[in-house]
Each structure stands twice: as C-alpha cells, then as structure tokens.
Simulated assay, not measured.
Amino acid sequence: MLTIALLALLCASASASAIQARASSYNGEYGGGGGKRFSHSSYQLEGPITALRVRVNTLFIVGLQVRYGTVWSDYVGGSLGDLEEIFLNPGESVIQVSGKYKLYLRKLVFVTDKGRYLSFGKDTGTSFNAVPLYPNTVLRFISGRAGALINSIGLHWDTYPSSCSSC
C-alpha cells in the first residue's frame, strides 16, 4: 500500500512539472563571429527594458546600451556615429526584433506591444525576425558580440517582471 501511495505521489509531481508553463526563449545570434562577447543577463534583475540607446553610422549599428528599470547597462560597441535614444512608455515592452546583418549588424527594428516601431540603421544585408517562443513574453535582455561595431546580437525573452520597485 505504501508503495502505491509513493508511486502515485511521484506520478503527480512529474505531471505537475510537465504542465508547468515555460516562458523563456532565445533567438540569435544574428551577425558575424568577431568581437568580444557581452551579455546583459544580470541587468534584467533591475526591471524591464525602459529605454534604448543605439549608435549608428552610414553603414552599421556601431553601439548599444539598454536601460533596465532605471539602470543603464554597460555601453557596448564603438564611439563613432550618431547616438539615438528612445524611451519606452510605462508598461510598454518589446515583443519583436527584426533587422539586417552581414559581418556586422546593419539595422535593428524594435516593435513594442503598443504598436511602435523603433528603427535604427540601414536597410541592407541578410534579414532576421525574432519573436518569443511563448505567448505573453517580452524582450528581457540582449547579448552578443561587439568591438568597434556590433558584430552580432542575441535576444532573450521571458515574462514581464511581476514586481519592479525601481521602474
């Protein structure tokens, strides 16, 4: 009898974990293999993405910086080109990222759940379109490779943070 109860308990816990909702997914890396690796994984603990800084020149995405909650990430990339800064509205999230690349990133387009298209760079190269694998998930952080330019980008998706005191 004890064996049957133990077996039933084991099956119940296995079933519960099997139906537990998954939320995180990853797209990328889009671009070339040069440059030094970077990741903003620890910044996601500061809150949702609230702003973007993108440096562009006539051909490439030169640099990136993302604000998580009220904290700006480390800047990655080079220093030449024009710096553009866009703030998301409170509660607004990135739900899709598309762009173009060859050996370096050439274009990035961030699409928000409020219908805004935040576009940076030039429309040339191989296209990519990244969306989360699971419903009701948003862009939580980026990773990739960078040197004097942004070589490549990876996009990490998960649920919107349930509590964010610094947002």
Rank of each mutant, 00 (worst) to 15 (best):
M1L: 13
L2S: 10
I4H: 03
A5T: 10
A5E: 14
L6D: 05
L6Y: 09
L7A: 14
A8I: 05
L9V: 11
L9P: 01
C11T: 06
C11P: 00
C11G: 00
A12P: 00
A12R: 12
A12M: 12
A16Y: 13
S17F: 11
S17M: 07
S17H: 12
I19W: 05
A21G: 08
A21R: 14
A23K: 07
S25I: 06
Y26D: 03
Y26C: 03
N27T: 15
E29P: 11
E29V: 13
Y30S: 02
Y30H: 09
G32K: 09
G35M: 07
G35T: 03
R37N: 10
Q44A: 02
E46C: 08
G47H: 07
P48K: 02
P48V: 07
P48W: 03
I49N: 07
I49S: 03
V54T: 10
R55I: 07
V56S: 04
N57Q: 08
T58R: 10
L59N: 11
F60R: 13
F60C: 11
V62D: 00
G63D: 05
V66W: 02
V66Y: 02
R67E: 08
R67V: 02
G69N: 12
T70H: 07
G77R: 01
G77K: 08
G77I: 06
G78C: 14
L80M: 09
L80T: 09
G81Y: 14
E85S: 13
I86A: 09
F87L: 11
L88M: 11
L88N: 06
L88Q: 08
N89T: 12
S93C: 14
Q96D: 02
Q96V: 03
S98C: 01
S98P: 01
G99S: 07
Y101R: 08
K102N: 13
L103F: 13
Y104W: 13
L105E: 01
R106A: 06
L108F: 14
V109G: 05
V109R: 04
F110M: 04
F110N: 03
F110A: 01
T112W: 03
K114P: 02
R116M: 15
R116Y: 05
Y117N: 14
L118W: 13
L118T: 03
S119K: 11
D123P: 00
D123N: 08
T124Y: 14
T126P: 00
F128D: 02
F128H: 09
F128Q: 08
N129T: 13
N129C: 09
V131R: 14
V131Q: 13
L133I: 02
L133F: 11
L133T: 07
L133C: 00
N136G: 05
T137M: 06
T137S: 04
T137K: 07
L139H: 08
R140T: 15
R140H: 05
F141A: 02
I142S: 01
I142T: 15
I142E: 09
I142N: 04
S143A: 15
S143T: 15
S143V: 06
G144R: 13
A146M: 07
G147W: 01
L149F: 15
L149C: 09
L149I: 07
G154Q: 14
L155C: 05
W157G: 06
W157Q: 10
D158K: 03
D158G: 15
D158R: 04
D158C: 01
T159P: 01
T159V: 04
T159W: 00
S162D: 05
S163T: 08
S163D: 08
C164W: 10
S165L: 15
S165C: 08
C167E: 01
